[in-house]
Design a protein around this nucleic acid. Structure first.
Lengths: 162, 162
DNA sequence: GGGGGCATACTCGGATATCTAGTGTCCGAGTGCTATAGG
DNA sequence: CCTATAGCACTCGGACACTAGATATCCGAGTATGCCCCC
């Protein structure tokens, strides 16, 4: 059980978009080049973000993506679910129903105990992601990345932002 | 990102094995029949448990599997990791290193901030699973399952336990 | 009747096919920019 | 010189191959059992 690499890409791309001035767009091409990723495939991750309403798109030259909401209003879970899907990581196929001793008219009332426990863990994971905002990530990055690199990266992006 | 169905099977099988009297073994065949699962494939999940040292095996007629430790000394995470593997759900391919503005002699000191956040969520998930013991599951099941069904299932298993 | 040896049937374990889902690529519809022609 | 228009280049979005991992199956090595023979 491993998250798609698209999740990593989407998070990094959102971090870049968060630093974009209001009204500017950044294209898939620029994002792909900046991260050294296949442009065509990265676009699928960005499509997921677009579909989830996290980013706005613009067509034509100087078009691309920008955040649809302020970075403080976007959390990690939204981004992860936009790419990875919203279904739980544990699927209960209710194998207890195959118990040969089970009476035929017997019908389970509550979900399987095993599933409930697994779902609780799943929810703990989601809750943790829900608690981290995109703005938090930007804050961390701005402290960790050397000012020189931060500045030049910002300029690199602005040169290509439409 | 969805856990293998083997995880579900392994958990249910462990619950059955937890009710087995000391020294008795239960075969893959019996476990598969009880849960309505393909015998050959279920054996792979049990192999995982065996490899992780959670269960002991015995060959020949009346052989099979039994728990290697008391149910109170086995937690959900051990079982899940035995089947699913121990690697983290988020893999960082360090795409920040592809930043075209990055100086060539620059070397990241700490792991990527994105990865750290994702790993924290992963750890929250694991911590939750680590906190549930196999004996807890058995306790829940013994309360939820109708006594009649519980009893007949137990007898069904004992008839086939070597 | 008791004990030892042997064939047997059953077990697990790893090696081998099939299928779904993640990965990667391609092309088309649509839009904003730009250059040009006309006023 | 300014404006309107037409062409164009660039954008995203969905449709189409490829590959890895999950799913399913098979066969072989090894052992405890039970039967049979011998004492």
């Amino acid at each position: 059980m491993i998250l798609k690499s698209q999740v990593e890409w989407a998070l990094h791309c959102c971090a870049i978009l968060a630093g974009l001035p209001d009204g500017r767009y950044l294209s898939t091409k620029a994002l792909a080049e900046f991260h050294g990723l296949p442009k065509e495939y990265l676009s699928k991750a960005l499509q997921g973000l677009s579909h989830a309403g996290l980013v706005d798109t613009s067509l034509g030259p100087s078009g691309g993506y920008r955040l649809a909401k302020p970075p403080a209003d976007i959390n990690f879970l939204e981004i992860v679910e936009a790419v990875e899907g919203r279904q739980r990581t544990f699927i209960c196929s209710n194998i207890r129903a195959n118990n040969p001793c089970r009476p035929k008219d017997y019908c389970e009332s509550s979900p399987c105990a095993v599933a409930r426990i697994m779902w609780e863990a799943d929810e703990a994971w989601r809750e943790k992601l829900r608690g981290v905002r995109l703005s938090d990530l930007v804050g961390i990055l701005s402290q960790e990345i050397p000012p020189q690199l931060w500045k030049s990266s910002f300029e690199w992006v602005l040169e290509r932002a439409g």
